[in-house]
Amino acid sequence: MNTNILQNILLFIGLLLLQVIILNRVLFLGYINPFLYLLFVIIYPYRKDRGILLLLCFLLGLFIDFFLNSGGINAAATLFVAYLRLPLLKWVLGKSEIDFPVFDITKQPFLKVLTYVSILTFMHSLIIFSLEYFKFSYLGTILSRTFLTSIFTVILIMFSLVLLTKRK
């Protein structure tokens, strides 16, 4: 249990630093930055008790906002997907709450995980860009940025998940 907590702390700090030092400067095609820090929401242990997860995801988003001067945009989006994580998992992967203690995202069928990750990422990006632009007249920009950023993020997250499985 203790090593688990330590692992999660390291994951939290590692993803935060990776995001602000490297990934926020990628600017692929001029404006696309992948949000790899979402990996935290996906691989954080699945428990029925969600209080700590919600708090951690809120803080992770808020810390990234501090670096990006973006108010509470990342905090709001990350918190939202963290809250919807369990219902979505039940819906996409058909898991019930009894399975959670032994549940491991890296051991699930590839296509189902891909669907799950894609939906989470898309919602996250959509909230981020909607809050950033905050106007209906920018709907086109919001959707195109959401779409491109999600694709880029999903590829990176799936790649990281494959790396995580290989190690075991």
């Binding site: 809120f58 988003g61 808020l62 108010g71 509470g72 709001a76 918190l79 809050l131």
Partner: peptide
């Protein structure tokens, strides 16, 4: 989070 965004 949303009030921080609006303030920003």
């Amino acid at each position: 989070a949303l009030s921080l965004t609006i303030q920003n």
